[in-house]
Design a protein around this nucleic acid. Structure first.
Lengths: 188, 188
DNA sequence: TGGGTCATGTAACCTGTTACATGATTAG
DNA sequence: CTAATCATGTAACAGGTTACATGACCCA
């Protein structure tokens, strides 16, 4: 059973073109970070592992004045792996939430109502921050879309869809937090 | 920096009363599974670690005909830890999505539109399954709430809130999937 | 007699997190 | 002169997943 993971995210990005670990880190954090997170160190480690698996090749680009670059390119085996991963529908596995926030909410009977309300308000403002971030992402997708050729518009549809999901999720969270705060304020 | 984790979920459940690993596993899967998942083996491992940390004590209950039970109880140190964890508001950390589904959607430009639609339909039916499951959970919360004393109604509010979140999330996902399918069908 | 429930786990592995390390260039 | 950016990682640890193991009882 193939586990879903960071590797396939990196594979997907490298499928767009060769990149260094450093660039991948930034692109990852700019585009996929909403639904998948990765530490810089983890990216470098996974790239090593993927090269060993034959999914990638690398070449060193010598620079003067700056550290040398290690440019990774996807191989045919890597492309194959990407497509296999894409074709695997495992809805049960790929549909998981892990939320410390909800875990705390569940056990909030153990503390004061005011503390719970405070947590919900912090959650709200975090959501609002993310709405701002997502709208930035969305406009950068559109800018990118205008700059590139027809063929890549196909990709753009899916990028927009993930952005749409993000927006819908944030709206839902904000509604939820608002309702929950009202309910809790009614208690005290 | 204390990491959010399974330990605190187990601590929260044991705060309601002593339980065995086996019982915890079931209660966990019945109540917290929507927003936190745990393997049986992981639960046993964490219980060991928590006992070593002094958060729990255990006593063996000898049974005839069945394997012996190991009954865990939360200690004062464990209760203290639970409250510390609850009081820590770290909205940035505790608000993460990791979704293989969205990761695949993002890279779906690499495959046919039909395959993407198929994935979205699988996602829809998975959502519908979970709606059924959540409504069962919700009614079992209410039954439990009617059976217990006034004081515990405080807990029930929070249990209902997490169930409400689940419902809202599922509705949002179903709406999203419906919209996305329409958009993709418009392409081909 | 075969599958489900009760009840415990171990071992190995994979993935994610945190802390640390280096060193040059450039912009304010 | 100081902070950010460019660019690479390693080591240690924490947490999650998979596969395997045991054995009795109960119900169809």
């Amino acid at each position: 059973m193939i586990q879903v993971s960071l590797k396939h995210g990196l594979l997907g990005l490298l499928n767009y073109g060769p990149m260094t670990g450093y660039e991948l880190d930034k692109v990852f954090k700019d585009s996929l970070n909403f639904f998948w997170q990765a530490q810089t160190s983890q990216i470098y480690r996974e790239l090593n592992a993927m090269e060993k698996s034959g999914w990638l090749t690398s070449e060193i680009e010598i620079q003067t004045g700056k550290p040398n670059k290690k440019l990774y390119s996807i191989t045919d085996a890597g492309k194959k792996e990407l497509l296999i991963w894409l074709s695997q529908n495992t809805p049960d596995e790929e549909f998981k939430i892990r939320s410390g926030f909800l875990l705390k909410l569940f056990f909030s009977g153990e503390r004061s109502v005011q503390e719970s309300i405070a947590m919900l308000k912090a959650f709200q403002s975090e959501c609002e921050k993310r709405v701002v971030f997502l709208s930035q992402t969305d406009s950068s997708i559109e800018q990118y879309g205008e700059a590139i050729s027809n063929d890549d518009n196909k990709k753009m549809v899916y990028w927009s869809l993930t952005a749409r999901f993000g927006k819908a999720y944030m709206d839902m969270c904000l509604d939820f937090a608002g309702d929950a705060i009202k309910i809790l304020e009614g208690l005290s």
